[in-house]
Amino acid sequence: MKVLLGIGGSDDSIRALEKTVERTANVGDDLTVAIVDNPAGERSREDIETRVTELLDERGVDAPVRLLDGDPGSSLVDLAENEGFDQLVLGGGETSPMGKIQIGNIAEFVLLNSHVTVTLVR
């Protein structure tokens, strides 16, 4: 399966990265990692890229890493639709101090606009 993982710098993105790379290593999906500019994220693009490369090397997974500019949600949806991906994977949201799940703006946009199947990682 051709999978596009979209990540910014938030904690749920990093969790989605770890779980998706793990899954790819186990089932042999055709994975592409897209790094977007998430203004709500706490990590810089360079830090994220380093983390991605480390993790891919660790698990022996060969996946291209793409840097996307512009609006994160729409650039992910564009890429997924235009390049024939089967699935678009995103972080599943942060939790509030109370423990409530809060879906971020990017996931919200993607869920409502993507014609490609969306997976939110919990």
């Binding site: 939790t95 509030s96 109370m98 423990g99 409530k100 799940i101 809060q102």
Partner: peptide, 20 residues
């Protein structure tokens, strides 16, 4: 349930309650 709380299993309910 609202945004995932209360959780649906007793062990998760206990974890959540211990926190709050």
């Amino acid at each position: 349930r609202a945004q995932g709380i209360p959780p649906g299993r007793e062990d998760r309910i206990r974890d959540w309650l211990e926190n709050i």
